[in-house]
Amino acid sequence: MTGVGARGPAVEVERLDKVYGSGNTEVRALRDVNLAVSGGEVIALLGPSGAGKSTLLKAIGLIEAPTAGRIAIGGVAVAGDDRFLVNVRSFRREHIGFVFQKANLIPFLTAVENVQVALEINDEPARAARRRSMELLDYLGVSDRAGHYPSMLSGGQQQRVAVARSLANRPDLILADEPTAALDSVRGRQVMELFRKVSHEQGASVIVVTHDHRALDVFDRIFEMEDGRLRPHEPSP
């Protein structure tokens, strides 16, 4: 990991708890979660629905503050004890890239504009943003669809554009929530390999929530979540 404080692990999660509701309706989505991810490392989070994977991703992505515990990204404490410790939008803009189950491209922007918007939000001049966006689309093999609207792209192409967008600001951390769920196995594997490629080539840490066990070989480490607890994945014999 190259960015932020660049001290220690790229992502460090300590004793993280997340509780929704209170009293009879209280739900503990995360229980004492500890995780450390190094720069350039690609890890997978497995687990059934409701296990807490997406909650952990939201906490690390500075979307929902944890109820207790601490999160540091690049050595900078970003969340702790039910509050964020940094300007979340600014931090997300500069250090975190997101990829979702659906590509979530903005429908009124073309493929290249969808990447460009992430750069311009981060104050990149329009001309430079355009150039980098085209480079990223080229890198991900969809430059020939640059001028097409999302509705004119296949699911795989849309997801590639989404990955390009997540890489636009050279993030230290990419968070992907079931990015292959809407893709067939071949395209799903291509996307997972893409994460590995960008992680290793660009030094970004990648945390991927997935149900897809067919491409686990691309990950450096695999974790499993159940009832809000995180533990290393033990492959079935």
Partner: peptide
Amino acid sequence: VHDIALLKLLGARNRV
């Protein structure tokens, strides 16, 4: 709404 949520997630300032 969805696009605005996405822009916020990407870190867009309120003025955008």
